[in-house]
């Protein structure tokens, strides 16, 4: 029976699928989805870029801001600047932002997972997770935003975001230190000190963070360690091979 399926017949049928395969319509795609990548300067420039793309990103930020304010109605913040990449939009806010300290922490609502199983869901090689000065992770869980979080003994956490993660907004005060990080993934930034992370489902108080993207996914490393030290940890985790 299999002889009936000649190479030519199989290949013709496969070729015909190009016009009949059910795929989402291309009209949903946005071909200029992010702001221009900031040039390799430090610190990150606020409101840089070309006007047309700035408008597109402004629309995205407006949505993120609206969502964040809706979820955090008492915020009396004025957005003084912003930039974004991946699932994250970083907003620089004025000094009159409400004190975020009553907010919970990112790990508060995480559902615990068995560590060995959870590590297979993190697209970072298991040996790299144990290769930093932190030693091997001691716990893991799934946050309400999806993806997997692993935690080390000192409280440092790594969140491997789900692909296509919804927009997350980090709110920082004007004096806070947000910098682009070079030599880490495709694009990375660090935020030194406490700030608010507004996800589509909650707002939390966050410590120093390094956030990066590469071919394997999007990652958020949080710790009370200095940003420079956190960057080195991230580079070890993101190392090739």
């Amino acid at each position: 029976m299999s002889l009936m399926w000649s190479d030519e017949r199989v290949e013709n049928a496969l070729a015909a699928l190009a016009s009949t395969l059910d795929v989402p319509p291309p009209s949903r795609l946005v071909t200029s989805p992010t702001s221009p990548t900031p040039p390799a300067v430090r610190p990150v420039r606020w409101r840089g870029g070309r006007a047309r793309r700035a408008l597109a990103v402004a629309a995205a930020v407006l949505i993120a801001t609206t969502a964040a304010v809706a979820l955090w109605p008492e915020a009396r913040r004025a957005v003084a600047g912003w930039f974004g990449f991946g699932s994250v939009v970083v907003e620089r806010v004025s000094d009159d932002v409400d004190d975020p300290r009553p907010l919970g922490r990112f790990v508060d609502d995480v559902t615990p997972l068995a560590l060995p199983d959870a590590l297979t869901g993190v697209p970072v090689a298991v040996e790299r997770l144990g290769a930093t000065t932190l030693g091997p992770p001691v716990a893991a869980g799934e946050p309400p935003e999806g993806g997997v979080v692993v935690r080390w003994a000192d409280g440092t956490t790594l969140w491997a975001l789900p692909a296509g993660a919804d927009r997350n907004t980090k709110l920082i005060a004007p004096g806070d230190d947000a910098r682009q990080v070079e030599d880490l993934g495709d694009f990375a930034l660090s935020l030194e000190g406490h700030h608010v992370l507004a996800t589509p489902v909650r707002q939390v108080i966050a410590n120093t963070v390094v956030w990066w993207l590469d071919d394997s996914g999007e990652y958020r490393l949080e710790s009370d360690r200095p940003a420079a030290e956190l960057v080195e940890l991230a580079r070890t985790l993101a190392a090739e091979g």
Binding site: V23, F85, A163, F187
Partner: peptide, 26 residues
């Protein structure tokens, strides 16, 4: 089409391509 075939379903293929476009743009 490539995303749909690799995923094994059309569901989420547009999200995958959108993420890929963002990565390509960066």
């Amino acid at each position: 089409r490539v995303a749909t075939v690799v995923l094994g379903t059309a569901t989420g293929a547009d999200d995958v391509v959108q993420v890929a476009m963002e990565r390509a743009w960066r």
